[in-house]
Design a protein around this nucleic acid. Structure first.
Lengths: 143, 143
DNA sequence: TCTTAATTTGGAATTATTCCAATTTTCACT
DNA sequence: AGTGAAAATTGGAATAATTCCAAATTAAGA
């Protein structure tokens, strides 16, 4: 069929690489996350996905999200104890969390800065990943 | 004055600054966090504190921890969705989370690196705080 | 001491997430 | 195309950290 296939195929491929099956639910959840890169929570993904596939369950949304994370198609993002948010941006990046609006923005961090950060670790410490979260507000000029 | 007094006095002072009262519970929770800087969870703090003051409740431990955070005497640290951990290290620092042992270590980040990170933010974004978490494993040397 | 507000307390409520057992679907192989 | 085994989905129950609540206690000031 048509152009939507593109994503599906790459999804199916990635899933197959991990010995997993491509299912309509997984494809829909993935498409949904890709469609609006606004870091939705599982509940929000559930709500969006449900309008397209009313029979899907919240448990399945959680399952799909975890599967997508395992396949490195989606990243889980946590701020404090707030519900986990999901992000299809695989490129290494930091997050800026606006306290006032609650919005989350991706922030690119230069490769050399990440490298410099890793170098600050004491000998013997090996970091597989670095999570960087900025907390603040997108400034108007007031306060 | 004994050195223990020091802490209590500074606690009472900081509390007073925020219009709050010094209570035995708050002092004990604070002393307990100070005694072993191992990033305990609220439950762990509760367990430690209970041996000294068996009548204290978990709700109070949560209350005290929040109060201490509000007074900038303690920092809350979150890793993914795991229980919040509490840290009396006020000096700005990052955390290294050892996947194998589950242990958490403080890591100092040079001031200029933090400044460099803040500079990567798009114009108009103002960061009040940066959370940096390394995830990995520390090669052979713990305890 | 008396008064009032702050604090503590135990238990119930909340919330995000995981678990579970039963069904349904998918895929590989005829 | 049909079949069986394995994988995935489903709804609901269970879990776990934290917050909420209303009553009891405690502290500080007049």
């Amino acid at each position: 069929m048509s152009s939507a296939r593109h994503h599906s195929d790459s999804l199916a491929h990635k899933l197959a690489d991990s010995g997993l099956r491509a299912t309509p639910q997984r494809e829909l959840v993935y498409q949904t996350i890709l469609a609006r890169r606004d870091h939705p929570t599982a509940d929000e993904v559930f709500a969006r996905v449900k309008s397209e596939m009313p029979s899907i369950s919240l448990a399945t949304v959680y399952n799909c999200l975890e599967t997508l994370i395992d396949c490195d198609l989606v990243r889980a993002v946590n701020f404090d104890r707030a519900p986990t948010r999901y992000c299809p941006n695989l490129h290494p990046h930091a997050h800026f969390h606006d306290k006032e609006t609650g919005a989350t923005h991706d922030v690119d961090i230069p490769e050399e800065l990440l490298a410099a950060l890793k170098k600050t670790l004491p000998p013997g410490y090996k970091a597989d990943a670095i999570d960087i979260t900025f907390r603040g507000h997108a400034a108007r000029d007031d306060k």
